[in-house]
Write a protein that binds this DNA or RNA. Structure first.
Lengths: 247, 247
DNA sequence: CGTGGAATCTAACATACGTTATTGAAATCC
DNA sequence: GGATTTCAATAACGTATGTTAGATTCCACG
């Protein structure tokens, strides 16, 4: 159960009080749903109701064109919050779908009102989360606009690995990796075939070991170099200095 | 002076009180700077100090790789706010630079504290602005990942035109357009040469008239079709229904 | 444990877009 | 108001990535 990942992530930015922990814990336990893989949590055009906290499993935010072209614009890992205050908007402009089976907690508007009223540290933490997500989205724009296929793939893998590690979800050099090559294609704007070629290339350079649903990064520093990866956009204020260490 | 554009933009989402207007007006008048074209307002690595409100002129947010590749990740038009609450972060992960000469108002942390304490409508309006900017960034990701060169260019031009119109900055079918083809290249991830080709294509199809520093869009509906442009992501709740009308 | 559908991998070929280079037309500057 | 730089336009050529199609491997499920 990865409320722990959320708290771990937020706490490396602000220190939360025991009360704050309790508030988050209660919110994450109240309305929990378990969804299968490959279903939509929210669909473009829906009226936004709750904010979704991913407790377990992977999901993604995606947009689609009428002719079927699909772009994954974000991945959600355990401990990620989908969109703080999204219910301000009238209508979703994108969809959110599961990749693996997912446990999700639905956070109500009232929860956020409560937080806003009496828990300033959580407010700050949520602002930080919002700003980091915005930074990630900018970095993806950069990734798609300027990096070559293999740089792009290396960059994406670095980001996922670091975000997992921040949530305490890696084992040394390895981590779960449930994305298919089709998912990677939708996220990188490459064709499936070229994703395959690109992964082979990274494997041949001993930058990754990717088999089954597990990713191993034998030398994160080298993978970062290959992806022209600068971790500053993740704003990992504390861990930031020891990035090359393995956990 | 385009405090008017800011208020006009925010008000099509929330109704602001006379006091709210006054607060915004004061903030926008207090610390105003005038900058020349093609200079940085903030640089990657800087400690964020103030939030910047663009009163006049165009600017952009951009990121750069070490080898010089540059991606514009957002354009700022008059009335745009750069990054609400950015000072929560320790260090900027991107730069902001002017395109034309710019007048900018620097909004302090204290201003936002005041707003948070006593002006809930402005708080909501700022959240809305934040969420819309996030949506725009996602749409750019989509644009770079999935659209062809000409779709991408058409889409970008639609977005800029609509955002200008929302701020009351268009004249019928026309608007100021100070971007060079190099700027467009940095924003679309295309080469300068291909931007040129693409613009010719749009011109040949009578979708745009772009000369000097003026853009004319004779038929916005057709340009939107060409760019597979769905305005939902701009969340223009009121104007949304009469998009095809010319102001 | 066998079967069917995903997911991965490979190959041959096609093309949208990048690169380099040059020229001409506008701005901008003393 | 001529010199200088920036910006736009063209052309010829190169290549990273897309497309189509097929063969394998993997894995979930009955």
């Amino acid at each position: 159960m990865s409320l722990a990942s959320l708290i771990r992530k937020l706490e490396q930015f602000v220190r939360l009080s025991p009360t704050d922990h309790a508030i988050l814990g209660r919110a994450a336990a109240e309305r929990v749903r378990h969804l299968p893989a490959r279903v939509d949590i929210v669909r473009e055009g829906d009226k936004p109701r709750d904010v979704h906290l991913i407790l377990a499993g992977w999901a993604c935010r995606y947009k689609q064109l009428e002719d079927g072209r699909r772009q994954v614009v974000a991945f959600f890992l355990p401990g990620d919050i989908c969109d703080v205050n999204i219910f301000i908007l009238r209508e979703m402009d994108h969809s959110i779908g599961t990749i693996t089976p997912v446990s999700v907690a639905d956070l109500s508007r009232e929860f956020f009102d409560t937080v806003a009223a009496g828990h300033p540290r959580i407010v700050t933490a949520f602002w930080w989360e919002t700003l980091v997500n915005a930074a990630i989205q900018r970095e993806w724009t950069m990734n798609l606009g300027q990096r070559t296929a293999s740089e792009r793939m290396a960059h994406l893998l670095c980001e996922i690995f670091l975000r997992l590690r921040l949530g305490g979800l890696t084992n040394g050099e390895g981590c779960d990796f449930p994305l298919t090559q089709a998912d990677l294609a939708d996220a990188t704007g490459l064709s499936k075939v070229h994703v395959n070629r690109t992964l082979q290339e990274l494997r041949a350079a001993d930058l990754i070991v990717l088999k089954g649903k597990t990713l191993v990064v034998p030398d994160l520093g080298r993978l970062m170099q290959a992806g022209l990866f600068n971790p500053n956009y993740l704003h990992m204020e504390h861990e930031g200095r020891q990035l090359d260490a393995n956990e």
